[in-house]
Design a protein around this nucleic acid. Structure first.
Lengths: 205, 205
DNA sequence: AAAAACATTGGTCTGAAGGACAATACAGGT
DNA sequence: ACCTGTATTGTCCTTCAGACCAATGTTTTT
């Protein structure tokens, strides 16, 4: 896993260099050189007056590197900026002058699929979200309203990943009947197969 | 770093045992035996009807072990419960039947100070908290981090509903190779078939 | 009552999916 | 140099999915 620091300071910051001596340091994002598949960690050094640059750079990275992990290190961290950055898909946000040890920890965390943020930010996220979490009554997909009752039952089970045989057993009908209902469901919903059906019913699209 | 599983099932779950063969498994929280300084990871197995138990246990752990990390593994994960658990200080929340590798990833993440949660939950946290209108930065599934680059590419296309033939064409490899990568992906993620893979990569857990 | 929609089941057939055996080439680390 | 992991491709085989050909009984609507 490769590290690329993007900072206006030539030579980066002391902590960065110490943490990742072999990392690349650049002042601007270079065009992709075909390493589209490798996972790269981008460390963006954020100045207070470069909101626009941050947005632009993050989007560029996401376009060019599908597997990239993006970290923002801010000179003056604040929660609003952190929220904004994470809404763009950044997986870690911290102080630019974090010690090398912390930077290494961050890398370990994000390279294993985790998210890194300060305890205060996390707390705030939770607080705000918890209060609004109540009204997420599970909305049944609108697609299901297009199906008959029996088709609904079969489609829901299929969308969970059950096989025709399993569906037949739990609904106490023949596998042949399951197929009939599924075929009808595909027809009505315009799904190509059970996988598309599952995607339709699980995503609210 | 010590692991303690607390589950009503004697012997825990298969995935847990595989991930941490040397962990302690208990059905209730035992009183503290002076290990106040060591960091312990508590894995709480959550049944749908044990909200009260969860709250009580978390608070007990936090009182007795100042350095503890608490993970909740839910039989039926849902965002409301996840938010609630994390508001109590839980640092990871996932499906109880997560494959062993995912569990190990979670441990790596949290033991380095990170937070582990499903992409949907994170997205929702950000969406709700952020004042800025969301662009949906495509959060790569945690599961994907278990796959090699090539497997990732294949798995992502398969999760969109493409056939092996279609995937082979756009990646410019043989259909046989697609199958090989997919089989490897199933193995790594513990998926039964491409539909389960799709559910894993598109949805929660 | 007649018509339409729904629920159920049958058989056949084609193609896709995925496992069970492989083999080869290449990169990186010990 | 050797071993491990990754990427690639091969053949054979079994199972499953879904389309297409039906039919019959029940329920609902017109």
């Amino acid at each position: 896993m490769q590290d690329i620091f993007i900072s206006p300071l030539s030579g980066g910051l002391a902590g960065w260099v110490e943490a990742f001596p072999h990392a690349k340091i650049a002042d601007i994002l270079k065009p992709n050189k075909s390493h589209a598949s490798e996972t790269i960690v981008f460390w963006l050094h954020m100045n207070a007056d470069r909101q626009e640059w941050l947005t632009k750079t993050i989007k560029q990275i996401q376009q060019q590197y599908t597997q990239a992990k993006i970290v923002v290190l801010a000179n003056s961290p604040n929660q609003a900026e952190a929220l904004y950055a994470m809404s763009l898909g950044v997986v870690a946000y911290s102080h630019a002058y974090s010690p090398a040890q912390v930077l290494r920890e961050m890398k370990t965390v994000i390279s294993h699929g985790g998210v890194w943020m300060g305890p205060d930010l996390l707390k705030r996220l939770i607080e705000v979200s918890s209060t609004l979490a109540g009204n997420q009554a599970e909305q049944v997909s609108q697609h299901l309203s297009l199906l008959t009752n029996r088709e609904k039952q079969v489609a829901i089970e299929a969308a969970k990943g059950l096989s025709n045989k399993e569906i037949a057993r739990i609904l106490d009908i023949t596998e042949r009947t399951v197929k009939a209902h599924l075929s009808a469901s595909f027809e009505r919903l315009g799904a190509k197969d059970r996988l598309h059906l599952a995607l339709m019913l699980n995503n609210k699209s």
